[in-house]
């Protein structure tokens, strides 16, 4: 990843993550197809809601005829980590206009957030509207198109996991967390490793007693507080 922050570099930087979107997007389309959602609903979920894991949950809740209120609450809980990510990312765009901030915010995802955090390690903490928009828009389009293609292919492919594409997303987060670990000079390796171990342990114990989405959120917040205390002690 080069320090350049142009639109073109943004497109190039986001390309590795596109595999994750295609793999999971196709999977979502296929699941939606087997859950009897029409192409229009699949496209609506991907282009209007645009929230990977929440879309899977919404689909299964629609299938179970859960009440609207329950679907809304679940969506909020699953996406509440977006609040943390957006607050974190927004600091890099304070100098941009409000409109530009809102545009960037509209399309932030786990992946483009993680990518941006890796990028700013290379650029002395700078990000640009052009770079971030490129990453956001490419991710948005690839996701939407992949889910629709998945829904169309739904009837044709029996087992899409056979080729390992479902692992793309996990692999991508492994890559991003590793790159974050080695390149965040501000926090340093030891502190970050301690926080990672803390989060992994917290998550491991929490998923036995609460839903995965809630455990993700609690482990994240607890990890941040743990990191803050650890940094103060050293």
């Amino acid at each position: 990843m080069s320090p350049s922050l142009t639109f073109r570099t943004g497109v190039r930087d986001v390309l590795p993550t596109v595999f994750g979107y295609i793999g999971v997007g196709l999977a979502f389309g296929i699941v939606a197809h087997t859950s009897h959602l029409s192409l229009l609903v699949v496209a609506g979920l991907s282009f209007v809601v645009y929230a990977g894991s929440a879309q899977f949950i919404i689909t299964s809740m629609l299938l179970l005829h859960d009440p609207l209120s329950a679907i809304f609450i679940s969506t909020f809980l699953v996406n509440s980590r977006m609040i943390l990510m957006s607050t974190s990312l927004a600091q890099y765009f304070k100098h941009e206009s409000l409109t530009r901030n809102l545009l960037i915010g509209t399309l932030v995802t786990d992946e483009t957030f993680a990518l941006a955090m890796n990028k700013q390690n290379k650029t002395n903490g700078k990000l640009s509207f052009a770079w971030q928009s490129a990453a956001n828009v490419v991710a948005y389009l690839v996701w939407g198109v992949s889910t629709v293609v998945g829904a169309i292919l739904g009837g044709l492919i029996a087992d899409p996991t056979r080729f390992g594409f479902d692992f793309a997303l996990t692999a991508m987060f492994i890559g991003l967390v590793y790159l974050q670990l080695i390149s965040d000079k501000h926090l340093g390796m030891t502190l970050q490793l301690s926080v990672m171990v803390f989060v992994a342990l917290a998550y491991y114990f929490l998923i036995g007693v609460m839903s995965q989405n809630f455990a993700l959120l609690v482990a994240t917040v607890a990890g941040c507080l743990f990191g803050m205390e650890l940094k103060k002690c050293r």
């Binding site: 957030f113 926080v195 990672m196 998550y203 995965q212 990890g223």
Partner: peptide, 17 residues
């Protein structure tokens, strides 16, 4: 607090899978 969000969220997302 927010400076720890990237590493914690990415670790938690890995753990999820």
């Amino acid at each position: 607090f927010l400076s720890f969000v990237p590493i914690t969220i990415m670790t938690a997302l890995c753990c999820e899978s």
